[in-house]
Structure formats: C-alpha cells, structure tokens
Design a protein around this nucleic acid. Structure first.
Lengths: 367, 367
DNA sequence: CTGAAAGCGCTTACAG
DNA sequence: CTGAAAGCGCTTACAG
C-alpha cells in the first residue's frame, strides 16, 4: 500500500487549466470567479479529493485556526468535562485543538510549554490547570507581552492578570453547608481537598462562613484534609469521628471522597442520612447509584469550557485588530455559579432553628 | 498589553550578523558551524526568546511531528485511559497531538475527519473509536491509498486491513466467568453492553464459552442487554431476576453497570457475595470503595495507548522510507491480554465440581 | 474575471 | 565553515 503523494494546488490548477490563484479563489469561496470556471475547478477538486495544505495556509495567513489546550488529570471528572466543553465549542467554530497534558499540577514547565505552543503558531491558549501552590506564577510575567492570548479556565482565583473563567468555589462550600444546616445538622465536619489547591481552600472557606453565620461550631476537630480520593474520604471520616464523635453531617469536597465517607459510614453502622448527612461535589454520573444516592453540588464545567473557547476567540480577534489600532482592552474574569443537587444522602430541609439556640450547642467534642 | 510580533529567523540572523542558514544550522544543532559563531547565535536566541515557526518548518520538511487523535466519550473511563497513554508517549517522543472528539460512535463523518486531519499535515492518525455497528466501514476503502498512516486502537476486532491495537475482549468474558464458576456459582447471568458494540459482543461470547465448557446454563433468561450506565445495570438485575430468580452471580460488562447491580442487590436485600457474586470490567478507581468492593477485570488501556504511538511512529518511518524503496510492509494487529482483579463482591475460589454434576442443574427458571 | 509576482518563515542542496 | 538561490504550498495585493 504505497501512500500516494498528496496533491498540491499547482496540480489542480494545471488539471483545470487555470492559475493557482484561481484555484485558491474557489477554495476560499471568493465571488470573483466566472461561474463556469468555478464549476470546473470544483469538479476537479471533488474528483481528486484535493484538500489544501493547512500548514501552508496558516503560514500565509498568520493564523492557524488551532487552539493550544493545556490540561491536567484526565483521570478525574472535572478536567474531562472542561475538555469536552472546549472541544465541542472549538469544533463548532472551526478550531483544531492541540492537547498538552501535564502530569503534576505543580509544574514548573509552564514556560517551555507556552513557548512550544506559540512556536506551533496556535492562535490562542487555554490553560485548564487548577491553581495549586505557586503554579500560576508564570501568569504575572508571561501574560502581558506574550505573543499569543492566554485564558485560564477551571479552578483558580477569579482575579488574575490573565483573562479567566472560574467556578465560584466559595459558593460550592456555602451551598453544601447551608443545605446541611437546613436539614437540621448542627455539627458539620468537612473533608477538604489538598489545601495547596485553591479550589479546596475556597470550599473550606464557604463551609466556615456558613457555620459562622449560623453560630455553629467550625473548629479544627471538624476539619480533615483529604487528597480527592475515595480512600482519603474514608480515612477522613475515621479521623473526624475521633475528634468529633457526635458529628451529624459531612461535607466532602468531591464525590469520590463522599463515596469513601458513605463506605466508611456503612462499615461503622452509621445510617446515612439518619445518623449522618453527606454531601459531595461534582455530580459524577455514578453518584445517583451510590447507596444511598449522593447529594452533591454541580459545577457547570462543560459550560466553562465552551465559554473559554468563545472568550479566547474574542481575544484573538481583538489582538488582531489591536495590531492596527494599538489600543488596549479589559481583562475578562468571569465566575460561574454552582448548583445544589439533593438526593438521599442528606436529610431534607427543615425549619432552621433561630440563631440564639444554636449558640448554645456544645462547642467541641474532643474524643 | 500589546502582543508583540513574533520574531523570525531573519531578525535573529541580522542581529547575529550571519545568514539565515547559519541560524538554521544552530537551531538544528548541526555540527558544521564555527564554535564562536554557534555561541553568538545561541546567545541571541536565548536573549530574544526566539523560537522557530513550526508551521514553516513542517512545510519545508514535509513532516509536522503532529499526530491526529480521534476519540470518543471522554466521559467514560476507557477512552480517557487510552488518551492519557497516547499523550504521554507522544510527548515523550516529541509529537504534538491534535484532538478530535466524536459525539456518537456511529459516526458517518469519518471520511471528512480523516481528510481534515490529512489536510493539517499530521504525520499519522490514531483512531481511538470503538467498533460500533458499521462505523469501521471506512477502513476498507480509506486505509490503503490514504496519504497518512492510520492506526486503530481500543475496542475493535483484531483483524483489520488497517493496523490495530486491541484488548482481548473475549478473554475478559472468559476471565470473569471462569472466576465466578471457580467461586461456586452455577447460574451466572450477564448484563452486556449495547450489542452493536464489538466489545460487548466479545465479552458476551467469552461468558458463553466458559459456561458451555462447564456445561452450565447460558440461555436467554440469563442474558440482558445494558447500555454501559449504572442505571441500566440496576434495571438489568431486575430483569434477570424475573427470568431467572435463582441466579447466584452476575457478570456486568463494565464497572458502572456492576455498580448498578450492587445498588439493586442492596435494595432487594440480596447479600453480595453470599447470595450473589458480582464482577465488573474496567477497574475504575472507585471500585475498591463500593460496598462491597468490586471484583473486576482490568484492561491495559494506557499501555494500549502508548503502544499505539510507538507503532504509528514506526509506520510513519516506514512510509517515509517506502517513498524511496517502494516496498510494502505487513499490517500489525496486536491484541493485549486483560487481568482479573478479585475483591469482595465475588466469592473466593473453591474446588470446581465435576462437569457431570453441573449438567443436572435446572436449565431454566422462567419467572 | 484572471494571472504574474512576491512573500509567509523556514530548510535543502549547492557553491565556494 | 558560510552564504546566495531555490523551494515547501499556499495567499495577498496588484495589473490588466
């Protein structure tokens, strides 16, 4: 099976008895071609299956219609959702996608990655890596002056010097905790993600805010740091029960850890939700088939991905126009709201007792 | 923040006081440059942060060092594993990846997708879409003669006219069923994936083969078609219990459906594994935290992805050499073996009773 | 409506 | 060791 040589515009032009420009005009659907010529060229293109070399086209137009995507952790739920949203919208808009996966979110390879993508002449870059430790430092130096527009998407603090699309992670914590309080819970533990993750810190903050607002305990004994895995959720429950035997609810910062909590509760004979309410985050598909089915907080990640593409497209257009106008533009920072999904793992809403009463609850139950 | 213009080789050459060829030599690490010149050029490259335009380089070299990946269903476990394997190996070998997602596996857009990828001058294409219905028909016509090497990976029949890397799905069914038999099960139901999927049919075939070999029942009443979702697994168990009330084991063709079965068993008060053994397929991370933890069959999907890149690289090299030699090569079709993982949802191995005895089991328990 | 010329940013022979 | 010339496959002004 000899792979045949790819056709060029020259050969098509010859076959049609016209110049290459005319073929180019047909390819780009320009109006200024005689109808008869247009048809003749078109027929030859169809017959030969000719397709223009997009590398060459990109070279002349200074535009590749390719987006560079940097992502992390396809084994997790969030990143795949964002990526799906990105790909779908990109395909819709005629963009190709160049995918780069990072193996550790705390990468220091950001610089070379961005340069490599720029060298490949991508029109824009979507950085879909969660903010962990100092892994965003590059954005301060690299953002302005970098030859290609960059957009951050996913778990990061909303206000950055680089345009960004984020989910309101503080609201995630507030939504989950408010729901647990409304269900009558009074000692609400939390199992967070790794605290070098911005998302984990924000969800924790949301939890604390609501507990404070209701005058409920939110001390150290009600708090355990997990690592997003189900195993850490199960261990986390054990540790919570050591420091606060009488907890009546747990906010697990993702569904995997919530699954670990359900598993642990089952093992320990604590009934969910009667003895213990549980809420997770993410709304993974399996959650409705856990036992009991899992209450959770949904993040509009696919929307975030799609919005990222829409936004980067605008930024690309702006950058092109700016070459002429040389004006500067605002840095869009959008934050999307999460949504609570109530299932069977949490007690349904009751009347919330007045604040004064909650203040009298025992503050800490050291084991 | 005016995005600065990208530097070109010409500007670097000027700054260094040499010709562009000399800069090119330095960029490509050619030996035939005076040490002093080499250093001078290198310094300027470092100072300016110049990076060569890879589109232009690809155009002259007729090679983009880009791989086109066509995948489906990032919301599922398998595809993300394959993709991770592909990306990792590709990055290691200096390939970029162009990702195209398909929304329905039964696409008829294969042709235009392949053409588009070819137009983007990818060096090779990895087709990571499972074989569903007739969605592989293109490979007969498109494979040979197509200007870029194509490799199939994932769920497909091993023997194709196009090179392929597959998992032995028949072995998956045999492994799971043999294990259930070894645990003492005698009426083993199956919940398959959609039967227009090759993978689903193969797992079903493996199940039937083992039951036959042991003289165990494998009639219609023990068989339900699912759709890979946990919900279909739960419904599937209900239906199995209607037609075969006395089943003592279920082989669910993926872990999600197995989760549905566990859920259903819990609801119906059937103890797992005492009343009902359950085995899934995939070895998803959460499986060890289901209740009880899920026995399953692992597929080496990441390896398959990595092997796919290694193989396509060889094919690309071969194709390049063949342009000179004009020889033809063999079509590699590799099949990788799965691995059984035993946890708590299935009874541990016992002595298997002799065949004669099993033959006397009631053949069918119509509800 | 159509084509000859020039150029996008590189690399590949070819000279010297 | 280094550079002038040509070319990769397109598109963009510019003529006519």
């Amino acid at each position: 099976m000899a792979h045949r040589r790819r056709l060029t515009i020259k050969q098509v032009a010859e076959a049609a008895g016209v110049s290459t420009q005319t073929v180019s005009r047909v390819l780009n659907n320009r109006p200024d071609v005689a109808a008869e010529t247009f048809r003749r060229v078109q027929r030859i293109i169809a017959d030969t299956g000719y397709a223009p070399n997009l590398l060459a086209r990109g070279l002349t137009q200074g535009r590749s219609r390719t987006l560079g995507i940097v992502a992390y952790g396809l084994e997790y739920f969030g990143p795949t959702r964002i990526l799906t949203g990105i790909e779908r919208q990109a395909a819709k808009m005629g963009y190709s996608i160049t995918l780069n996966l990072i193996h550790e979110p705390e990468t220091d390879g950001a610089d070379s990655l961005l340069n490599n993508l720029a060298a490949r002449q991508v029109d824009g870059i979507i950085w879909a890596i969660p903010e962990v430790s100092q892994n965003r430092d590059w954005s301060h130096t690299k953002g302005p002056g970098f030859p290609v527009p960059v957009l951050l998407v996913g778990g990061m603090s909303g206000q950055t010097s680089v345009p960004s699309i984020a989910i309101d992670n503080g609201a995630i914590g507030r939504l989950a905790t408010e729901h647990l309080v409304a269900g009558g819970a009074r000692r609400i533990g939390i199992i967070t993600g790794p605290l070098n993750w911005w998302e984990a810190r924000e969800r924790h903050r949301g939890w604390r805010e609501i507990l404070r607002a209701h005058g409920l305990p939110n001390d150290e004994g009600l708090f355990v740091e997990g690592d997003w895995t189900a195993a850490s959720g199960e261990r986390g429950l054990d540790r919570l029960l050591e420091t606060a035997r009488d907890i009546d609810a747990v906010f697990a910062s993702n569904d995997q850890m919530a699954l670990g909590v359900l598993h642990g509760a089952h093992r320990l004979g604590r009934r969910v939700p009667d003895d213990l309410s549980v809420v997770g985050v993410d709304n993974i598909a399996e959650g409705s088939h856990y036992w009991p089915s899992l209450s959770t907080v949904h993040q509009p990640l696919r929307d975030a991905g799609a919005l990222a593409v829409l936004t980067i497209d605008t930024l690309i257009e702006e950058a092109n126009r700016r070459d002429e106008l040389d004006g500067s533009s605002v840095t869009p920072n959008r934050v999307l709201p999460p949504k609570l999904i109530v299932r069977e793992s949490s007690r349904p809403t009751r009347a919330v007792p007045p604040r004064a009463e909650s203040d009298e609850l025992p503050y800490r139950g050291e084991a």
